[in-house]
């Protein structure tokens, strides 16, 4: 593994202009998103908040009161942060210290649960192809056999060294966002979706997003590796991305029709990558765990089929 990490560093040496460019773009996206969300949250507090709050207050009074446990009646101090899935707007409940340093945390939180699950698979595909996929597609793997490592050792080392190269800095970004969003973890969030309203802890949402990101990155690496066996130029890069966005667009389209909004997790589950994204996007539905489970099962089936088709491929 140590030798493979040396290999990766040597590869980086040859690719640094592209990687520098990719990382700069990524950094710009994150900075832009931070600033944008920060301002967005602020403007909401000044404008639509009062109207939205009165709407939700009524809605919550109608729906959140559980006759079995009267202590769960909503109070202003308990539920302070809102996600309206129809408008994708996030709002605070407590207007008194809304602008005093909370906007940054909420921007980081939003980045973590919405942007990162969206961005992770795409960046993972890029890295997976640039290192692990290319090892197979360009035949570098064949040359590693000179050292008489077994096929399994070569694949494992190539996979994990590529994955490590991606996931370590990525994990730091996730950790940074997670810690930045931590002031929100003591509060609960309300998720309002047409005729249903649910509450969940902000910490659960953030943890779910981090897990989603890591699993989707892992699946992407595996998928690209197996697709690389097919030796069709560009397929390892294009297919996961196309599948990914196609399913996302489809899920969003369906969700925009109120009657079919329930179908989003079902559609999302039909493709593991998109499902993970949709899970992350919807972020925090309790149903997402089921969705994630379905996605993982489908990913295993997908893995099995690909392995059967290409796993015995030669170099």
């Amino acid at each position: 593994m140590k030798a493979f990490l040396r290999l990766r560093l040597a590869q980086l040496k040859g690719r640094y202009p592209y990687l520098l460019f990719a990382l700069s773009v990524l950094l710009l996206i994150i900075v832009f998103a931070c600033v944008y969300y920060g301002r967005h949250v602020e403007s909401l507090t000044k404008g639509d908040l009062a109207e939205s709050l009165s709407f939700y207050e009524q809605q919550l009074a109608d729906k959140l009161v559980d006759p079995q446990s009267p202590q769960d009646i909503m109070t202003a101090g308990k539920y302070r942060f809102f996600l309206d899935t129809q408008t994708a707007k996030w709002m605070y409940w407590d207007p008194l210290y809304l602008l005093s340093g909370q906007a940054y945390s909420s921007a980081c939180y939003k980045l973590l649960v919405i942007v990162m699950p969206l961005l992770t698979p795409v960046v993972a595909v890029f890295f997976a192809y640039a290192f692990f996929g290319e090892d197979i597609a360009s035949g570098y793997c064949r040359e590693y056999f000179h050292s008489r490592l077994s096929r399994r050792q070569v694949f494992r080392a190539s996979f994990f060294s590529s994955f490590g190269l991606f996931v370590v800095p990525w994990l730091l970004v996730l950790l940074f966002l997670f810690l930045s969003a931590s002031p929100m973890f003591g509060i609960k969030l309300l998720c309002v979706n047409l005729d249903s309203t649910s509450a969940y802890s902000a910490l659960e949402g953030a943890a779910f997003a981090v897990i989603s990101c890591l699993i989707s990155a892992f699946l992407n690496f595996a998928l690209v590796g197996f697709l690389a066996f097919s030796r069709v130029n560009g397929l390892p890069v294009v297919l996961p991305i196309v599948l990914f966005y196609m399913m996302v667009m489809l899920a969003m389209l369906w969700q925009s029709v109120p009657r079919f909004s329930y179908a989003m997790p079902l559609i999302g589950a039909s493709v593991p990558l998109a499902s993970l994204l949709v899970s992350g996007l919807s972020g925090v539905y309790w149903g997402s765990w089921l969705n994630l489970l379905a996605a993982l099962l489908l990913a295993l089936v997908c893995y099995g089929l690909l392995r059967r088709r290409y796993g015995e491929g030669t170099f």
């Binding site: 030798a3 493979f4 040396r6 290999l7 040597a10 590869q11 040496k13 040859g14 690719r15 360009s138 035949g139 570098y140 064949r142 040359e143 590693y144 000179h146 050292s147 008489r148 490592l149």
Partner: peptide, 19 residues
């Protein structure tokens, strides 16, 4: 199949380091 951005020596050395 060698890495195009590395020298001939670097390419062989990297594979040699796997031994």
């Amino acid at each position: 199949s060698f890495y195009p951005n590395l020298s001939g020596y670097e390419n062989l050395s990297l594979i040699a380091s796997l031994f």
